[in-house]
Design a protein around this nucleic acid. Sequence first.
DNA 1: CGATTTATTGAGCGATTGCTCAAAATTGGC
DNA 2: GCCAATTTTGAGCAATCGCTCAATAAATCG
Lengths: 198, 198
Amino acid sequence: MPRATLHNRQDSLERALHLFWQKGFHATSLKDLERTLDMRPGSIYAAFGSKDALFQEALERYARLGLVELERTLAEYDSPLSGLAAYLRKLGCLRDQELPSRACMLVKSLLELGEREQAALGKAEALLEAMEACFVDQFRAAKHAGELEPSADPVRLGRRLQAEVMGLRAYAQREVDSQAVHALADDMARSIEALRLS
Amino acid sequence: MPRATLHNRQDSLERALHLFWQKGFHATSLKDLERTLDMRPGSIYAAFGSKDALFQEALERYARLGLVELERTLAEYDSPLSGLAAYLRKLGCLRDQELPSRACMLVKSLLELGEREQAALGKAEALLEAMEACFVDQFRAAKHAGELEPSADPVRLGRRLQAEVMGLRAYAQREVDSQAVHALADDMARSIEALRLS
DNA sequence: CGATTTATTGAGCGATTGCTCAAAATTGGC
DNA sequence: GCCAATTTTGAGCAATCGCTCAATAAATCG
């Protein structure tokens, strides 16, 4: 009985994510979204509620995809430390890929949003926390596997890695050449590998 | 013969810097600036030209103050490596101070600005490059002083430190407790000190 | 073929954006 | 006190902002 839906919601969300990731929340206007989603304002609001709500959905999707990618990388390695090092080296290729932005959308949001967008800001913080928790878990696994010395603190190591990833990706956002980012990521990866008990 | 200028230009710039650093470029409206500077639009435009130009001046002032602070810290130590470690530990106190933002304004700008604000974006990049160059110089000095092993690469070390500072300050922007930021900064400082030849 | 249901449209709302400029206010020199 | 020089004002511009909603289009039902 109803009219068939013309737009695939998932696909629209993907396009919106692409746009928000590239331009940030404030610099993305509804006109931009209308163009990119090929939808009129009414349809966008019927599907997503508001610009803010759409942004939050995009944030969550971004983080989910990022976590999947992280865990996929980690799963390729038997050694937890090797998995983390490999993840860093993958990030070193950021400058080569064609992406909306080289910087992490969560960090972009963390730095851009203020009190007026508290809901989205809180979501970004929570998702960063989840990312950090994943790192901590991985270091815990490394410790359990005997890769780390007994005195090692997985919480501090996870926190440090989180900060390094934030830094690496912010650095990659600069107009530096690809080789520099690769070298930086490699240096960070070596630091992780240096934690391994020989 | 002219009418005396009512507002101190330097002071106005300082207030604008405070506001831009806190809210970012896009989220700061002229109404906000009018309120904070206690100036009407005409005066602001007479003094600074445009919102974009004012932002660029604020960026430059921010970076100049930051570089001064960095060099002041470094000058307190005879050992280049100790100076860098001390700088990191100072950043570890970010969460305790009352600042417009814990994140670096240059990084916030780097992540927020797009093609439409290319001039300001380019300025932020150049200022970050200057910061990195300062780090590189310091590592060069450390190498010359025999603190680093001969094979050490000051360019890579400077780049790495730049990324760590970016990461540390982005991390500090999160709603984490002060102790975590202190621990993170300390871990980073220890990494620097670990480079020292015993 | 209606009838019904739902998706989509797009003109346009009130508010806000960055900004302009003629007028008013304030000074110092004569 | 008056003129000239300069700063400051603030109403208000055109454009854009996020968003609403009555009208329209499309699809499935009997």
